[in-house]
């Protein structure tokens, strides 16, 4: 949903004044400010956790942070593209379920993993393409188009199977059980490697290709991008294909992690992914954000969970409340930055 479609009756009043107080032009590029906020929060959490709990800063904990969230990292990368253009994708959680359950059921009926794995990723891409076409050709708001895709993907996964399907395919089992030790306590899994590869590719595409720069240009000012002669239409469709593909990969990783496919997985996962992207410093109105920031966003979400686990007395629901509070802080920070720009 583009920013100018939404009313801003408040204008700049209160925040404008806050922004004025915050004034003073630092040497730092303003684009990095939200990400700096992300890093500060991340560091504070690490330091706080480390000083409070024993073994908090161990290789095992940090490794698990990546291992448990590899799928979310991939989703966040895809969403970063979409959100930088000023769009949104609500369908990623449902696509995770769809590609997981599809993969599990195909494997169960004897398809080889070498066919199934690419196939379930492509399913995500195709859904993304459908969304992109709805948005671009039919001028449907991203919110509604991806909402439809969410219902579609969720419904299709229910059609495939209502119950959880366990995966026994040797390839998946191998992917799921392999641990690659790094030094004494650190370890990696194939899923983490895949996720980090996606991050690297996402980073490369956003920062070192014309396509990536067009993504930023569209988020900055779509009309300007058109007047500059940039391929706006193609790019806008492609970001949804990318997000869909990432959701497909995310679904694959989630299936590997749980060694099963289930049509109810990923309910609300799109919210976690969006929260991670926003906490990672990407501005929801578009034009600014970084893939690496989103990775840190995911890690912060993971850390919240870890800390609550370490705390022991805190109940799990505090996770959601803290995420909400962080989201609020970052949204207000972003708003202040936007007000300052004008």
């Amino acid at each position: 949903m583009s920013a100018d479609q939404l009313v801003r009756p408040g204008k700049t009043g209160v925040l404008g004044r806050v922004a004025g107080l915050a004034g003073g032009r630092g040497g730092l590029d303003r684009r990095f400010l939200p990400v700096v906020g992300t890093l500060v929060v991340f560091t504070l959490m690490l330091v706080g956790g480390g000083s409070r709990y024993e073994n908090f800063l161990s290789g095992r904990v940090v490794s698990n942070l990546f291992i448990n969230n590899s799928h979310l990292i991939v989703l966040a990368v895809g969403l970063t593209f979409v959100i930088i253009t000023g769009g949104i994708d609500l369908s990623v959680g449902a696509v995770v379920a769809l590609s997981g359950i599809l993969g599990a059921s195909l494997l169960q009926s004897g398809w080889p993993a070498t066919v199934v794995i690419p196939l379930i990723i492509v399913v995500g891409s195709v859904l993304g393409l459908v969304v992109g076409v709805m948005i671009h050709v039919f001028d449907v708001q991203p919110f509604i188009a991806t909402l439809a895709a969410m219902f579609l993907a969720r419904g299709l996964s229910y059609v495939i199977s209502l119950s959880s399907i366990t995966i026994t395919d040797p390839t998946i089992v191998w992917l799921s059980s392999t641990r690659i030790p790094l030094g004494e306590t650190w370890s990696l899994t194939p899923s983490v490697i895949i996720a980090l590869l996606v991050v690297a590719v996402g980073f490369y595409v956003l920062h070192h290709t014309r396509f990536g720069r067009t993504v930023y240009a569209i988020g900055g000012a779509e009309q300007s991008a058109t007047l500059m002669g940039l391929p706006v239409a193609r790019t806008k469709v492609l970001v949804y294909v990318i997000s869909g593909t990432c959701a497909g990969i995310g679904g694959f990783l989630f299936a590997v992690g749980s060694r099963s496919g289930y049509s109810l997985t990923g309910v609300g996962m799109e919210l976690d992914a969006i929260a991670a992207v926003v906490i990672g410093g990407t501005i929801l109105t578009g034009g600014s954000g970084f893939v690496l920031g989103s990775v840190f966003g995911v890690l912060i979400l993971g850390l919240i969970q870890t800390i609550i686990t370490f705390e022991g007395t805190l109940s799990s629901w505090w996770t959601r409340i803290v995420i909400g509070a962080l989201l609020l802080a970052f949204v207000i920070l972003q708003r202040v930055l936007v007000v300052r720009r004008h």
């Binding site: 720069r213 067009t214 930023y216 240009a217 000012a221 002669g229 940039l230 034009g287």
Partner: peptide, 13 residues
Amino acid sequence: CENLSVAENIMLG
């Protein structure tokens, strides 16, 4: 695009 650098704005595309 205000969100990009001067150089990029000159060379975009």
